[in-house]
Simulated scan of single mutants.
Amino acid sequence: MAKRLFNFADRTAVAGVGYTPFTKDSGVSTLTLACRAILAALDDAGLTPADVDGLATHRVGDSAAPSLVGPALGIDDPAWYLDQFGGGSVSHAVVGQAALAVASGLAETVVCYRAINARSEFRMGRAGSASPEAQYQTPYGLVAPAQHFALYARAHMLKYGTTEQHFGQIAVRQRAYAVKNPRALMRTPITLDDHVGSRWITEPFRLLDCCLETDGACALVITTAERARSLRRTPVLVSAAAWGGGTSALSGGRADPTVTAAATLAPRLYGQAGAGPGDIDVAMLYDCFTYSVLVQLEDYGFCAKGEGGPFVASGEGPPVNTHGGFLSEGYVHGLNHVAEAVSQLRWDAGDRQVPGAETALSTAQPGYVLPATSALILRRDR
C-alpha cells in the first residue's frame, strides 16, 4: 500500500530571523543568548513573546532548554515544544518539525533557536563522543570530529583525485562572502596560498578547512503562510523539509564512504518541493569542514559523484554559503545557514545578495559522524 503523507509544502513560512553577535567570548549564559536571539527574531517579524505558542531547539547538553527559555520570556504554557537531542545533523529537522506543528494546527507561532557558548565554554571540536561506537575508536586516536571527517575526505581524494586545492577554493570563496558580511567573525580576505600555509589540524585538513568555534545564538519565527503575509517582512515559505538517517558510517555500515546520508534524503526533499538541483538559486551547505561542502554538491545532485573537486574549481552551480558559512561567519550549529537563506530570499542580504534569488537549499551535517541528516527547501513568497 502506498504511503499517505501529510503535505505541508508552502503552508508555513519563516516570518522573522534574529541573531546575537558572534564572538569568541560572549560573557553571558546560553540562556541569555537564546533569549536575545529570540527577541531579535520576534522584533524582526513585528511580534512579541505574547504571540509565541511554541518553542523548538536542538542541543547536546550545551544550551538552554525550552523549559528555561519559555518562563524567561513569559511563555509559561506553550502549546507545543521540541527539545531535540543532537548536533548539526538535526538542525534543520528542528525547523521542519516546527513547520509541521504549525501546518497541523498544534501551534500558530513557533520560535526555533540555537544558543551556544562553543568557544568560551563548551568546545565543540574537543575530543570526546557520546556514541557507544567511541569505545572502539578511542584506542586508535579517533576521537575528534575533524579526525572522522578527515578519513572520509581522504577516501574521496584517493578514489576520485580530489585535491587539497579543491578544499582551499571552498575556503577562499566563502571568505570572500564573509568580507561583505558585517556579522562574520573572519572578514580578512584569504588566498589559496594562505590556505596551504595554514597549519595542519589533521591531514588533509588545515586550519582554514575547519569551522569556527563560536559563542552566539540564532532564532527563526515560524508561522502560517497566511499570517506571515500580514507581518513586517516578506514571507519565506517552507516548501520542503526532510530528515532521516541510516547506518552510522563509524560502524562501517556504508559501503562507499564517499557517499553521505544526504544522497538518500535528497530525492525525498526535492520530491516534496516539486523541484530539482537546477531550481536552486542559492545553497547553504553544512560546512563543518570544507570537504562536507564538496561531497554535498555531489549528493544533492549539483554534479555527479566524484566530480565535486572539478565542479568547485569551475565555479559552476549556485552560490554557496553567501554569509561565509561556518568557516568564516561563525558556527551556530546549523540555524545560521537557514537564517542566511531567508535573508537571500527576502532580498535583504546587502552586498552579498544573489540577484533575484527565489529558491534556496539549506542543509544539515550530511550524516558522517552520526547517521542522521536533515535539509530544507525555502521559497520566496510571491
Results as ranks from 00 to 15, higher is better:
Thr260Glu: 07
Thr260Cys: 06
Ala261Gly: 15
Ala261Glu: 15
Ala262Val: 04
Ala262Gly: 11
Thr264His: 12
Thr264Tyr: 07
Leu265Ala: 06
Ala266His: 02
Ala266Asn: 03
Ala266Ser: 12
Ala266Glu: 03
Ala266Val: 04
Pro267Met: 01
Pro267Leu: 01
Pro267Phe: 00
Arg268Val: 04
Leu269Pro: 03
Leu269Gly: 08
Leu269Val: 10
Leu269Arg: 03
Leu269Ile: 05
Tyr270Gln: 11
Tyr270Pro: 04
Tyr270Trp: 07
Gly271Lys: 06
Gly271Ser: 14
Gln272Met: 13
Gln272Arg: 02
Ala273Phe: 02
Ala273Gly: 10
Ala273Ile: 01
Ala273Ser: 09
Gly274Ala: 09
Gly274Cys: 08
Gly274Leu: 05
Gly274Met: 06
Gly274Phe: 03
Ala275Trp: 02
Ala275Ser: 13
Ala275Val: 06
Ala275Phe: 02
Ala275Tyr: 01
Gly276His: 04
Gly276Ala: 10
Pro277Ala: 15
Pro277Asp: 14
Pro277Leu: 11
Pro277Tyr: 12
Gly278His: 12
Asp279Lys: 03
Asp279Asn: 09
Asp279Glu: 13
Asp279Gln: 11
Asp279Pro: 05
Ile280Trp: 05
Ile280Phe: 03
Asp281Glu: 14
Asp281Trp: 08
Asp281Asn: 14
Asp281Val: 11
Val282Thr: 15
Val282Cys: 09
Ala283Phe: 05
Ala283Glu: 13
Ala283Asn: 10
Ala283Val: 10
Met284Asn: 09
Met284Lys: 02
Met284His: 13
Met284Pro: 00
Met284Thr: 09
Leu285Asp: 10
Leu285Ser: 07
Leu285Glu: 13
Leu285Met: 09
Tyr286Ile: 05
Tyr286Asn: 07
Tyr286Ser: 08
Tyr286Glu: 08
Tyr286Pro: 00
Asp287Val: 11
Asp287Arg: 09
Asp287Gly: 12
Asp287Met: 06
Asp287Tyr: 05
Cys288Leu: 11
Cys288Arg: 01
Cys288Phe: 09
Cys288Ile: 11
Phe289Ser: 13
Phe289Cys: 07
Thr290Trp: 04
Thr290Asn: 14
Thr290Ile: 08
Thr290Asp: 13
Thr290Cys: 11
Thr290Ser: 15
Thr290Tyr: 08
Tyr291Gln: 11
Tyr291Met: 09
Tyr291Lys: 07
Tyr291Glu: 13
Tyr291Leu: 11
Ser292Ala: 14
Ser292His: 05
Val293Thr: 15
Val293Phe: 04
Val293Glu: 15
Val293Ser: 13
Val293Met: 09
Val293Trp: 09
Leu294Val: 15
Leu294His: 04
Leu294Phe: 05
Leu294Lys: 08
Leu294Arg: 04
Leu294Trp: 03
Leu294Pro: 02
Val295Arg: 07
Val295Cys: 10
Val295Phe: 02
Gln296Val: 04
Gln296Gly: 03
Leu297Ile: 13
Leu297Gln: 12
Leu297Met: 14
Glu298Trp: 00
Glu298Val: 00
Glu298Ile: 00
Glu298Tyr: 00
Glu298Gly: 00
Glu298Phe: 00
Glu298Gln: 06
Asp299Ser: 02
Asp299Gln: 01
Tyr300Asp: 10
Gly301Ser: 10
Gly301Ile: 06
Gly301Pro: 03
Phe302His: 15
Phe302Val: 11
Phe302Arg: 10
Cys303Lys: 03
Cys303Gln: 06
Ala304Ile: 01
Ala304Ser: 04
Ala304Gln: 03
Ala304Pro: 01
Ala304Glu: 12
Lys305Thr: 02
Lys305Met: 00
Gly306Lys: 01
Gly306Ile: 05
Gly306Asp: 09
